Amino acid sequence: MEDADTQMETMTVTSPEQTMQLGAQLGTLVQPGDLILLDGDLGAGKTTFTKGLAQSIGINANVKSPTFTLVREYHQGRLPLYHMDVYRLEDGGAEDLGLDEYFDGDGVSVVEWSEFISDLLPTTYLRITLSRTTDEADTRTITLKAHGDHYQQLVDQLKE
């Protein structure tokens, strides 16, 4: 269910480095318990965005897509990062994974392909949609949609 007062912010990046930079900017703002949803087609930049976020919270490990493991945990930063890829849950099965324990935990949760677990999501989160543009190979449109006051504050800070 969408909030009537939810605002969207759209920006354009023209390289993977700019996608990482935006992730890094968000990483400086996230707090324990934050939930970031990353949606977009294969190759849209979801994991690239997550790499930038991870670096800015002090995670130096090689962040890669958790497609086959579902969740990768990183604990060496200023707060834990729980990177999830729920693409394989398209046909269900997420109810038994205890994802709410991550969402309510002491770290930041980043979920790729969140549409496959929409019924398990809390009411507040930041949804980031990455879309390829047709004109340039590395150009992406990134749309941020805050659900809840805390996430609107994050979006407002990113705009500054």
Rank of each mutant, 00 (worst) to 15 (best):
E115S: 06
T12H: 03
A24N: 01
A61M: 09
N60E: 15
E160T: 10
Q152R: 12
T134Y: 03
L89M: 09
Q21T: 08
S65P: 08
A137L: 06
L154M: 15
Y74L: 14
E73K: 13
K51L: 05
D138G: 00
A146N: 05
Q55K: 15
L130F: 01
R88Q: 14
A4K: 15
A24E: 01
F68N: 03
T48N: 15
V30P: 01
D106S: 15
M1V: 03
G93S: 12
S65R: 12
E136N: 00
T134N: 09
L53H: 06
Y151V: 10
D119A: 12
Q152Y: 08
T6K: 11
T10M: 13
T133C: 10
Y125K: 13
L38C: 13
F116C: 01
T129S: 12
F116L: 00
Q31D: 01
Q152G: 05
G77F: 09
N62H: 05
G148I: 00
Y87M: 13
P66H: 08
V13I: 12
S118K: 07
R140I: 01
N60Y: 04
L81S: 07
G93V: 11
L29F: 05
S56D: 12
K145Q: 14
T69H: 07
D85V: 10
D41G: 06
G23F: 09
M8P: 05
A146M: 06
P66I: 12
Q7H: 09
A24K: 00
L121E: 14
F68Y: 15
Q152V: 06
G52E: 13
Y82H: 14
L89F: 12
W113H: 11
E95A: 06
R132W: 08
K64G: 05
P122L: 13
L154G: 04
G105C: 04
R88D: 13
V155P: 05
Q76L: 12
T139K: 02
Q21C: 02
G45K: 06
G148A: 01
E90S: 04
T124E: 15
A4N: 05
Y82I: 11
G45W: 06
G23A: 00
D104Q: 08
D3G: 12
T139V: 01
L97N: 06
G23T: 01
G43I: 04
Y87Q: 15
W113E: 14
M84P: 04
N62T: 06
Y82W: 11
S114G: 04
L37A: 00
L42R: 06
Q152W: 05
L29N: 06
T14Q: 05
Y125C: 10
F68K: 07
H147A: 14
G98W: 13
T69I: 13
D135W: 00
N60V: 11
F116D: 02
Q157F: 03
A61Y: 06
P66W: 15
D149N: 08
